[in-house]
Design a protein around this nucleic acid. Structure first.
Length: 504
RNA sequence: GGCCCAUUCGUCUAGUGGCUAGGACAUCUGGUUUUCAGCCAGGUAACAGGAGUUCGAUUCUCCUAUGGGCUACCA
């Protein structure tokens, strides 16, 4: 362990929207990896300054999802052993709505230093100004009407606005000329002309700060060393830099990460499919697959390794390897990866994972022996891409589906032949003792039977499989028969063969 | 409209002033196989366009195009 003099501290600062966006997960993951890799700390700060958009239970949900995926926060909020949301860290509170006095104090400080000013303009006037500017094809910006009011005018306006039961806002007095350069660890240096920057609001009339004020103050006091956030924030960074300069504070290092986008390249949105991590978890994507896949959106190790555990990611993560272009969120590769991770689970683990999905599809798993469920799991293990598929794929183990007689007919044979083979098979299997109903025995006996009679494999195996499953596709008939016998006894196998025969 | 960012196979991406531009997913073909899956072996498929710099540009520069982000008392 090296003790760096300047501790690396990063923060994940979501607003509580109620669900975890894939993009948020990627940001949090990169921050987590960066912190762990560099022996730093990850802070969770909740940005709840928009009172109109509060969602009950959002923090709770966020923490649950992150915990499931293996992302933990060193400071801020966490889930205790009873899954209750708790706060920890010396720089508390980590909820912005509980830090109001700090923001107000600093807004006042900026006013006294001439870096900010009260604005008394009504929303209506602002709207009008904006309309006019748009009509004139000018960039819509605040016209700075209140920027140069005299002391007397301010007092007058203040009295007026108070009478109406309103409060002024505080706006940032952006320097009228000059340039602001931001040094981005990923995108390099970017220069902005100050004159195109708006005198944005710092403190709203409800006494809450806007994002811009709060983020600068909190990052400063929470001693954040690296700001890692989505590219959509890039245009507001010059404002933040100017704020740091106005306060005379040291500017943290910045790293903007490229957007994750829809197939049509617009910002990844709810409208075009699932974007909530919860949805993916519910559909039966494994946390390892989700983490592995999301990590590769905009980052890669520059080697040909693609399968990464969280530990691998931590040891190889490097901000310098993040690329600049947006990545399309295409779940194709995620499906493949998920299949890989499913196959890497033990039969036992996978069965545990699968049980809730069976229950969701209406199977009363309590009624069955564990060994039976695990045997089914083994059959499906290499076929499964998502856990949620299990109900549909294995329904025939719980009730023989309705199927058409034509299903029983192998493509190179006819119905009479199918009926014949099923009949012979029934006779053969009826003669077997219960303990012969295991895969190896069944396979050997049936293959011998086929060979001795010079039948085509398919002419026997296809109708057998179809009669046992009622499905177009399934694991091989020996496996199905063995598992069926394990769950219900050999009679069930015989019965299904007879049911098939009767259909023909 | 203004500002900013980006551009290598369909997708995620590697890569270099001179390479048959590499890998993975997807897709296609073949093999194993009663079906499906898996596995194995192959195939198709990309440097947005134009100038310039250079002996030589996918790579460096500029322009254009296209796409995207931002432009609130939202974050």
């Amino acid at each position: 362990m090296t003790d760096t003099t300047s501790q690396i501290r990063v923060r994940f600062a979501p607003s509580p929207t109620g669900y975890v966006h894939i993009g948020s997960l990627r940001t949090a993951l990169f921050e987590f990896l960066f912190a762990r890799k560099n022996n730093g700390k990850l802070v969770l700060r909740i940005e709840d300054t928009d009172r109109t958009r509060l969602v009950e239970g959002a923090v709770d949900n966020l923490l649950k999802v992150m915990k499931q995926l293996g992302i933990e926060f060193d400071e801020g909020f966490y889930l205790d052993e009873n899954n209750q949301v708790k706060e920890r860290g010396e720089l508390a509170p980590y909820l912005q709505s509980q830090r109001l006095p700090l923001y107000q104090k600093h807004a006042l400080e900026l006013i006294s230093k001439g870096h900010a000013y009260y604005c008394f303009c009504s929303e209506e006037r602002l709207e009008e100004v904006r309309k006019e500017q748009v009509a004139l094809k000018k960039p819509p910006m605040y016209d700075r009407k209140c920027r140069n009011l005299t002391k007397e005018q301010i007092e007058e306006e203040m009295a007026k606005i108070r009478e109406q039961g309103r409060n002024p806002v505080v706006r940032f007095a952006i320097p009228l000329e000059g340039q602001t350069v931001i040094h981005d660890l990923i995108y390099g240096d970017i220069t902005y002309e100050n004159k195109i920057l708006d005198d944005h609001v710092l403190l709203k009339s409800d006494g809450f700060p806007t994002y811009h004020l709060a983020v600068v103050i909190d990052d400063h006091f929470m001693q954040i060393s690296h700001i890692i956030r989505g590219e959509e924030w890039m245009p507001s960074t010059p404002k933040h830099v100017l704020l740091y300069q106005a306060f005379n504070w040291q500017i943290p290092l910045m790293a903007h990460i490229p957007l994750i986008v829809n197939p049509d390249k617009t910002k990844l949105s709810k409208r075009q499919g699932d974007v909530a991590v919860e949805d993916f978890l519910n559909k039966g994507y494994l946390k390892e697959a989700l983490v592995n896949f999301v990590a590769f959106l905009g980052w890669n190790p520059k080697t040909e390794q693609e399968i990464f555990s969280m530990q691998d990611l931590i040891s190889q993560f490097d901000l310098a390897k993040i690329n600049k272009a947006a990545a399309i969120f295409d779940t194709n590769k995620l499906d493949w990866m998920n299949g890989l991770y499913i196959r890497s689970r033990t039969d036992r683990e996978l069965t545990d994972l699968l049980i809730p999905y069976w229950q969701k599809s209406g199977v009363d798993t309590q009624k069955f022996k564990r060994g039976f469920l695990e045997a089914i799991t083994v059959l499906e293990k290499e076929r499964l891409k998502k856990l949620s598929e299990i109900g549909e794929r294995t329904k025939y183990f719980f009730a023989l589906p309705e199927y058409d007689a034509s299903l029983l007919v192998w493509k190179k044979a006819d119905a009479t032949d199918a009926k014949n083979k099923l009949s012979m098979l029934t006779d053969l299997l009826s003669g077997f003792s219960e303990n012969k109903f295991i895969k190896a025995e069944l396979e050997k006996e049936i293959k011998d039977f086929i060979a001795n009679n010079n039948f085509d494999n398919g002419s026997v195996l296809w109708p057998m499989r179809a009669a046992l499953t009622g499905m177009q596709a399934s694991p091989p008939p020996f496996d199905v028969a063995a598992v069926l016998a394990l769950g219900y006894g050999k009679d069930e196998v015989i019965k299904r063969l007879q049911t098939g025969m009767d259909k023909l």
